[in-house]
Design a protein around this nucleic acid. Structure first.
Lengths: 203, 203, 203, 203
DNA sequence: GATGAATGAGGATTCATTCAT
DNA sequence: TATGAATGAATCCTCATTCAT
């Protein structure tokens, strides 16, 4: 299917209500994650996912209308964790603490399953998926956090975008190099982000 | 073929000696670039590339032993431009000027053909290609530039890697958002990089 | 792919469990046999085989991981018949009767579908397939039969190999010439084999 | 091109008169032989042959109208040697000596470059080539030799064919097994042939 | 004559998806 | 609902052959 080929439902075919179905769906998504981690996009095909999940290919298509929908579901699963983690930033008293939490959450997210995160970042870029994946809320929270930490920042939305971009850039590169020292890594990310904000913050 | 499969030759199959073939090779590589830009990885297949280049599929395989070799050649072409641009940084008098040129070059590289650059960054990540693409020289130059600008920096090589990562992260994200204001973009990138270096530089 | 390339799996991809798929597999193998007989190696391509079998190309690859695996399966099918026939030789009372049965079986095997047998002999020679096709049991049975018939034979294993070689040589040549008189053919084969054994048997 | 596809000239495009051309032709044929030996039919393609011969693909087609013509030429080259060797059998005084020479020549032929001989035997079987390759003379000589050795043999032509078949069968099998003891091999071949003739000779 | 760039039909293989059971 | 056999469009790649230089 061409990259531009329009739509087709990407939302799950049916919302599983039965507990058994929920398990099935979850196992399929986790299988997708594992295959992506182990074999990259190359090995990521629906038959392989179904096989690893221990269900038939027919069942996979029972719950997901197509391959893209499965990818979207996986991205959503990962994003949700991130989302919950990041929301905590809004509960922090000081603006700085909120910002630090934000950065920490972003690093954690990217570092939890580094290869998976990187591959999903790439997948997210596909136009066909982007529409389905508008993650405005994430950026909204980040914007809010920045506003609190640096009230007079001229372009908090831009800064929010750049913040994620910086984290992603540094952590992904570190992941590719196989770095494991999280402390050190987070230190460098903070340096970049705080540096960026301090120079960008005041007009 | 699995991603780990020990690869087929990635170097060009034959070095074109006649001027006619040089043109052919160049047209194939440019066609690859255009298709990647227009259709993404989805549309990037050898038949399409050959067709757009106006040559037969056989000709493509006369010069490239496989699809990956073509990708590698394209990456090399882009990297070479970048390399030449970046090398100028070493000729600057002041360390700061060198650093600024480095950043500028990186931004230009990433912004020249944004979608292409982003997709090639992704492609570069494929294990099969990584071996072939060791770009140590690029990082060496950056390391050297950083050493000159911040002589007492504790880890110039790490900083060099992070520098590219930051630029890539911010510019790619900007590219995805369709930003066009280079001035502003470069300003933000500098903020992040200089901020990072100032906080990381002194122990 | 070079002849020495360390091969892709040659064993069947999945063992068909449902009766429907058993039929499919059988029809594919028989189609391969027919095409080989009718058109030789030249016409022996997977698309043609699938078409003649009345299944899609996809189905063929569902059961055979590659063209070679299909060839191997066909050889196995033919060898199995032969094997069963030849095993009867061990049940004969007299050594001579066993030997005669052995020869008869070999001639029948080679003459049943002469062109097919000849082409499979050739295919068997391909290094890529040879590994997969070790038919030691066949030669073991033949060796045993010879030992019984000529207890004092100095090199029964060598004789067993030569026996098959002689049969193959004469019958294939006869097949190429289009001979049909089995009686006469078998008479000549016996002459060669018994002559060989009588001159080789006693030191 | 299909196996049945008719004709097209298989004889050399032009008889090379210039000595330089003769060299070129010879080098191409030898290159073909070497590639066949080294890589089997798989590696046997015209571009590879031309490359190994050190001539351009265009030159190859200057001297051979097609791939089959090249194969035929190679077979002819090998057959010619054999032919000359075998013809000596007719000069022997005794019938037995002639027969022994015949067998020896056949074994030598098959054992000189065993893999090449085997592959050419196979190639010879292709209908497209068979027409071009009628080797009646070879069989005629053999028939004559047999007539002299066993004047009252009922079917000397059949025996001649079987003789070659037996030799080919045993020697090829030995070649496949990597045997190198020529003495022993020839001994076994004689056993088979003489045994065959003694049992077949008198009605 | 020689060269080698170019051609493109042919053939192997994959994988998302459907549908009969 | 689950299963998994079947499908076939889409791709990659090879190699015999031609022809402009």
């Amino acid at each position: 299917m061409n990259e531009r080929t329009p739509h087709k439902r990407l939302r799950p075919r049916k919302t599983p209500s039965q507990p058994r179905s929920e398990e099935t769906v979850a196992s399929i998504i986790e299988a997708a994650a594992q295959i992506l981690e182990a074999d990259g996009f190359n090995g990521f095909n629906t038959n392989a996912v179904a096989a690893r999940a221990g269900v038939s290919i027919g069942s996979l298509y029972q719950y997901f209308p197509g391959k893209d929908a499965l990818t979207v579901a996986l991205i959503r699963r990962e994003t949700t964790r991130f989302h919950e983690d990041i929301a905590v930033a809004l509960t922090k008293r000081s603006g700085k603490a909120g910002l630090e939490h934000l950065i920490g959450a972003a690093v954690r997210q990217q570092l939890q399953r580094p290869r998976l995160a990187r591959l999903l970042d790439i997948a997210e870029g596909r136009p066909a998926l982007r529409d389905e994946l508008a993650k405005p809320e994430l950026e909204q929270i980040a914007t809010e956090v920045i506003k609190r930490a640096i009230p007079r920042h001229a372009h908090p939305e831009v800064a929010a975008g750049d913040l994620f971009a910086i984290v992603r850039g540094i952590v992904d590169a570190a992941g590719e190099r196989g770095e494991t020292d999280i402390e050190n890594l987070e230190y460098r990310v903070r340096a970049a982000v705080f540096g960026y904000l301090s120079k960008t913050g005041t007009p």
